[in-house]
């Protein structure tokens, strides 16, 4: 057993975990943050993507113990109260989801992509390439790509929630 402490969505948390416990299980089962999903056991689907120290990462392929001392942001940490993050708002607006299973990972990956490349600097090809670690069984991706482009442009215009998005 190991005692792990980290910052999750701005809050200092700690817990006792087995050394083999995956970060995703720590988030879901001990912290009750069930927005982060598990869609595969081969590290390929991206449903579990969160930000670890500001970088998108698959929480199913990181031990909780490895993340000790890190700053983690999950899908629950994006919205500012009732106000959705611009990427969340764009997924809603553009119907970027159907069943919603891939959506938390897809949105965390998209926020990382926009922050990394810079708001407003994405085109369709860059979005498709940037999201190739996230699999969606429902949408056919078209509306996801539209949502990310729209959010990227909104954030470039200083759209709402920009400060929060930077912190994520």
């Amino acid at each position: 057993m190991a005692k792990v402490s980290m910052t999750v969505n701005g809050r200092a948390v700690s817990g006792d975990v087995e050394d083999r416990t995956l970060l995703v299980h720590f988030l879901r089962e001990q912290l009750g943050l069930t927005g982060t999903h598990v869609g595969c056991d081969t590290s390929q689907c991206g449903a579990c993507v969160v930000h670890v120290d500001g970088k998108a990462a698959k929480s199913c392929t990181i031990l909780a113990a490895q993340a000790a001392g890190s700053t983690v942001v999950t899908i629950e940490g994006l919205a500012n109260g009732a106000e959705l993050h611009p990427v969340q708002a764009a997924f809603k607006e553009h119907h970027g989801l159907q069943c919603g299973f891939c959506t938390p990972g897809m949105i965390m990956a998209s926020v990382d992509l926009i922050n990394r490349v810079g708001p407003g600097k994405l085109d369709e090809k860059a979005v498709r390439e940037g999201l190739d670690g996230n699999i969606c069984r429902c949408t056919g991706y078209h509306n996801i790509v539209q949502a990310v482009l729209s959010a990227s442009n909104a954030m470039a215009k200083g759209g709402k929630g920009k400060a929060k998005a930077k912190a994520a």
């Binding site: 590290s43 970088k55 998108a56 990462a57 698959k58 990956a109 940037g130 190739d132 670690g133």
Partner: peptide
């Protein structure tokens, strides 16, 4: 290599 999430780790 792989995808961006893999490349981050």
């Amino acid at each position: 290599i792989g995808d961006q999430h893999v490349r981050h780790r």
